[in-house]
Write a protein that binds this DNA or RNA. Sequence first.
DNA 1: CTGAAAGCGCTAACAC
DNA 2: GTGTTAGCGCTTTCAG
Lengths: 346, 346
Amino acid sequence: MPTIKDVAKSAGVSPSTVSRVINNHPRISSETRKKVKESMKRIGYHPNIIARSLVKQKTNTLGLVMPYSTEEAFADPFYSEILRGIGSVAQDKEYSLLLITSNGEQEELEVTLKAVRSKRVDGLLILRAKSNDALLKELKELETPFVVVGRPEDEKNNFWVNNDNIESTKNLIEYLIGLGHKRIGVITGDSEYIVYKDRLEGYRRALYHNGIEYNPNYVIQTTGHHGLTTRYTKELLESYPKLTAIFAVDDLIAYGAILGIKELGLKVPDDISVVGFNNNPLSQLITPALTTVDINIFELGSTATKSLINIISEDPKEYYHEIVKTNIIVRDSCGGDKGEVDGNGE
Amino acid sequence: MPTIKDVAKSAGVSPSTVSRVINNHPRISSETRKKVKESMKRIGYHPNIIARSLVKQKTNTLGLVMPYSTEEAFADPFYSEILRGIGSVAQDKEYSLLLITSNGEQEELEVTLKAVRSKRVDGLLILRAKSNDALLKELKELETPFVVVGRPEDEKNNFWVNNDNIESTKNLIEYLIGLGHKRIGVITGDSEYIVYKDRLEGYRRALYHNGIEYNPNYVIQTTGHHGLTTRYTKELLESYPKLTAIFAVDDLIAYGAILGIKELGLKVPDDISVVGFNNNPLSQLITPALTTVDINIFELGSTATKSLINIISEDPKEYYHEIVKTNIIVRDSCGGDKGEVDGNGE
DNA sequence: CTGAAAGCGCTAACAC
DNA sequence: GTGTTAGCGCTTTCAG
């Protein structure tokens, strides 16, 4: 493999001149520039990025911290889709992407810290927001630029991009309320993840704003294991047969819920309405097609990446965050509440 | 950030000694080893991987060439899952993962070649097998180690890992035939991808081995766009109402097919049986639960990664490939052919 | 078993 | 506008 020296010899200039044309240095005669470029092409030269990184103390690489996760969480196309968004701007801005995977909290911490300490990456995209996140604390001490996709607990002192999960959920639930539903069950995920906390909060606010009392018994927390979701849904509906709608905090959970409802011999939306969240591409294919919230995952990824690159290069003095719009996608999984056409309270 | 020199000073040894303890050099006194390790810890030293890569001419990084793809192809959890398999062994063997994404054939080629020419990666995992693949040709010229996940066209002169798609499909179709089906429609994907070619071939072989004539009109090629899948399925069934089963070359396609069947007012499996492929985690959740083939995606990823690492370090003289086992998952989407209980041919 | 010195391929003052 | 020189942080002969 030819190096910059070979090009220099072949073009009859010094290595620094070659370096300058590579880096588009302004003060270089168009003549030598041309000469050098020809030499590069002739001998098949390509700059060694590693060497450049070493002297520049910059790798032009972004680390992607994937959630360590069960098989099933990974089945979530969320990650494929956000990778698309991230990849698209990284490509554009000439950044590479280092995938950081792990099998648990401890390993995630170690692997991620190693990547930054060993100077493999210029910054990180954290693809989830958790409570009490040890990773974020360590990262701040290392002064690594990072942006989290989601709302971190300490939202004033981090860079992040997210949907407004509280408000979006509130709107979604109010759509249900508008249809006449008052007793709405919730199947939520691991409360360690802030996204689920927020969606639950949105649910509560919707009830509150509409004078409906919040009943904690209507809320079931599942582990993300689909089989369990189905079972929990059935148990919930058996315990509280007056429920007329189910809010699943994620479409994948909604699928399990719908299955549970069907297994009970009930119909969606005739007996029970169901809403999900995230607008999984499959949600338009199931029967009934699922009413859900499109959270614009691609944009979440691209926005976060732009932010990170900006932070790396500009070192902004103030923390900031960005909110990506959502919109409700009304499909066929909700009906009016036929069980209680009069009255307006519990 | 402290460097090896700082450690050396602090421990009262030379930089080379420090380097030796980092690299577990055998001929080093356990005393100095201890002393050096303490110094490293004390001053918070972490080796700079970039510098090491430069001198070793090795990055310990694997490039992952993701298929450039539409929004919907990305929704396929195949990629999430294979990433898990890859990540798990890469982690274990201390390799990093560079994600290579692109928006089209040309960009994919450029970006990938750039990654290898600029010495960013030691080898590549190509996550798809296409006909007439320009990328593979270029890569061979560059003498980069790579393994393809799938069966490349020139199977004798490449490293690859794959399922036996032909045989697996043959078995799947024979399961259908065993149930009494003889007129089986096929919804397949882009024939540029060898996986779909092979599955179609398996279908033909199953028919052939059972004395059933192959009818090309029963085979529809879709683009992977779900909406179209649904429409094509309906058209197929309207044109050939005698079909009693549908073979979808991928579960995602099967979902669209099932929707089409339902829209026609027909029932699965009572009127039409459906089988898919890949065992998407959602396939157990839909109604009816889909009979499909589990292709062990995680193992596909881990096997390919082990192979690649082996190739990088051992430089084997012969090409080889590995086959990952599949197994049919029988669920509820197939019934016997009630339309034609007698007879055994067309 | 340890140290000195050279160098991986590139960039960046500093000269001229 | 271009060349010279030093050096990024590490590994690796070669001595001893």
